[in-house]
């Protein structure tokens, strides 16, 4: 499938329509529309409290052309568990006959932090659903506070720069590896700059029997204080710098889908976002070095994981 065909498919399905209130340059629309379009069956969505939720369902309007429920922040995976089991029970009784796919859409706060035990539980129980986390690296909906997905060196409103601070001091949590540890059929990192890769992975995720996890890099121009027209360009740098590698874990086998020939220094990626302004200062060069080292180590580990699963 080429990009034109993909665009046509997404537009024909039109599962999430325009008119929503996401910020300029926000990739939530691209990510949600692309992923949902990859299902051949109708999709039912459970959404966590998040940017995607508040911007798309301001009563009495909705952007969703598929059944959609929002319950709370931490429980989107528990909610989909109930929906999926109700579906199985009603199917057993003959009250429903068609095939339906189930999708969670949650941000990093709802996935890395408050919703982690609920999603871990749902993955462990083996429900047949796709968990889509879009990480915009913090609580952007409430004004850019720190989450465990916030990268080291990022300033947020709760880890601001100051005389004694360059921003967040901890590395981000690796939710992708946590998902893999659940030994589920499919886990993948996606990035909207490579929409075809994202679509193909979503298709696999829906087709797998059992839980699948997609974690999407979602640049937030509003709170990274970047030019909204540069979302996709910034997203591309995330992968070219190995900050956000494209890889998938399928039935026990890990594959890196794209290996940059010359990975760019992390500085080039960080420079596109004002939230990293302080860590790029000369006095913080040791911090910057540690960030680069962490990225390179994680990349080496991925290569080893790929090698080991061959």
């Amino acid at each position: 499938m080429n990009i034109k065909e993909l665009a046509k498919r997404i537009n024909n399905k039109d599962l999430m329509v325009s008119g929503h209130r996401t910020c300029s340059g926000c990739p939530i629309g691209i990510i949600s529309r692309t992923v949902a379009s990859a299902s051949d069956n109708p999709v039912v969505v459970s959404s966590a409290t998040s940017c995607a939720e508040v911007t798309t369902t301001i009563y009495p309007q909705t952007s969703w052309n598929m059944p959609w429920i929002h319950s709370a922040f931490a429980n989107s995976a528990a909610t989909i568990s109930g929906i999926e089991k109700a579906y199985l029970a009603l199917k057993k009784k003959g009250k429903i006959t068609k095939e339906i796919n189930f999708l969670v859409i949650a941000g990093d706060g709802g996935s890395f932090d408050i919703g982690l035990s609920a999603s871990s539980g749902a993955l462990e129980r083996g429900h047949d659903f796709v968990y889509l986390c879009y990480t915009n690296e913090g609580y952007q909906n409430t004004g850019a506070q720190r989450s465990s997905a916030t990268p080291k060196g990022a300033t947020t409103t709760t880890t601001p720069a100051g005389i004694n601070s360059y921003g967040k001091i901890e590395y981000s949590k690796d939710l992708t590896q946590i998902a893999i540890a659940h030994n589920i059929p499919y886990v993948a990192q996606v990035n909207p700059y490579n929409q075809i890769d994202m679509y193909n992975k979503a298709k696999k995720a829906f087709e797998k029997k059992g839980p699948a996890v997609l974690i999407a890099y979602a640049a937030c121009p509003t709170n990274m204080k970047a030019d909204p027209s540069q979302t996709i360009a910034i997203s591309k740098l995330a992968t070219e710098s190995n900050f956000w590698p494209l890889y998938e874990y399928e039935d026990g086998k890990l594959t890196i889908n794209y290996k940059p020939k010359n990975r760019i220094p992390i500085e080039e990626f960080l420079r596109t976002q004002t939230k990293f302004k302080d860590v790029l200062k000369e006095k913080n060069k040791e911090v910057l070095r540690s960030i680069q080292e962490d990225i390179d180590n994680k990349w080496k580990r991925l290569l080893r994981q790929e090698e080991l699963s061959k």
Partner: peptide, 15 residues
């Protein structure tokens, strides 16, 4: 928290 959340999902699904 998940017990009631799952019940909410199941009930909203018409069961």
């Amino acid at each position: 928290h998940s017990a009631l959340s799952a019940a909410i999902g199941a009930s909203a699904a018409g069961s």
